[in-house]
């Protein structure tokens, strides 16, 4: 994921830092697995409480090949996607309206400052009262998790857009709408990407938490339900398999965003390439 440029200016590192990143990751992961295996074997911990890595991997394999984990993941991702879409569209509407009308601008700022710091799972009880024990409640809380950080970041991006570029737009006599689409929005893209990443992170955490609290609902259940079921039946290996799946999907989503960033704002020199821990 890191952009490696060998221009001879950076002295070659020796020792651990000199090793390629994938190898370093692989070594560290193996050490964790070895320590885990060693602990389970040497201590007399009950495998029902703390299963060895082998059990967890076979649970992962079973889960993904039988479709139970894949189905749960798909359900959760679909919900997340719908909520993300609704949240982003709402955020765009808010920021554009705020640009046109100062009353809306104030209202959006007030709502953002009140609701952004609120962990949106806290909205779950009220969502259940309003919408009942169904998918709508989940979408409500996840949209809530997404919309405020995205709004906050896009409007910051609009406010801090380079004034010279805005003046170029004024010289061209752009309408307010073209000023938004052709100047402000692209100028705010670094902020928007940050907002989307934050929103996605919040949304991902919120949906898993909400599903956990929700328990089983309807015929299709998501990753949170999968975790909860596995706990209920004391299938600890499946609990671990669920956690690993949640973590890996989080990493993949983040990587997807970094990929988009490299093709847009990094390519345009509006943002430095993502510094990874190896640099």
């Amino acid at each position: 994921m890191s952009l490696v440029i060998d221009d001879g200016l950076v002295p070659r590192r020796r020792g651990w830092r000199g090793l390629p990143v994938p190898l370093r990751r692989a070594i560290q992961l193996s050490l964790i697995l070895a320590g885990w295996q060693l602990y389970v074997q040497t201590s007399d911990v009950n495998p029902l409480i703390f299963p060895p890595p082998g059990d967890v991997f076979s649970a992962l394999w079973r889960g993904w090949s039988s479709g139970a984990l894949a189905g749960a993941t798909w359900t959760t991702l679909k919900l997340l996607g719908i909520s993300l879409l609704i949240g982003v569209v709402m955020a765009l509407i808010f920021t554009v309206l705020a640009r046109v009308n100062s009353f809306v601008d104030d209202a959006v700022e007030l709502a953002t400052s009140m609701l952004n710091p609120l962990p949106s799972v806290a909205m779950l009880p009220i969502a259940i009262i309003w919408f009942g024990l169904n998918v709508n409640s989940l979408i409500f809380v996840v949209v809530n998790a997404v919309v405020w950080p995205v709004t906050l970041n896009i409007s910051t991006g609009f406010r801090t857009a380079n004034q010279t570029l805005v003046n170029v737009g004024r010289v061209l006599g752009l309408s307010w709408w073209r000023m938004v689409t052709d100047v402000l929005f692209p100028a705010a893209l670094p902020y928007t990407m940050t907002g989307l990443k934050t929103g996605l992170g919040y949304g991902w955490r919120t949906i898993i938490a909400a599903e956990l609290v929700f328990g089983i609902s309807g015929s299709k259940s998501g990753l949170g339900n999968y975790l909860n079921d596995a706990r209920y039946f004391l299938r600890t290996d499946e609990v671990f398999a669920g956690i690993i799946s949640v973590a890996v999907i989080g990493i993949i989503l983040e990587a997807g965003f970094n990929w988009i960033e490299r093709r847009t704002i990094v390519r345009w020199g509006m943002k430095q390439a993502t510094a990874t821990i190896d640099d």
Binding site: T164, L165, N167, V168, R170, V171, D182, W268, G269
Partner: peptide, 30 residues
């Protein structure tokens, strides 16, 4: 009475080009 393309401006700032457009598109877009 207002800015317009009949009075194109070259500013002092280097960041007056749209960073997301190529050089060609920076000239073509206006």
């Amino acid at each position: 009475d207002k800015p317009g393309p009949d009075r194109a401006v070259v500013f002092q700032e280097f960041d007056q080009l749209f960073p997301w457009r190529t050089v060609l598109d920076n000239v073509a877009y206006p």
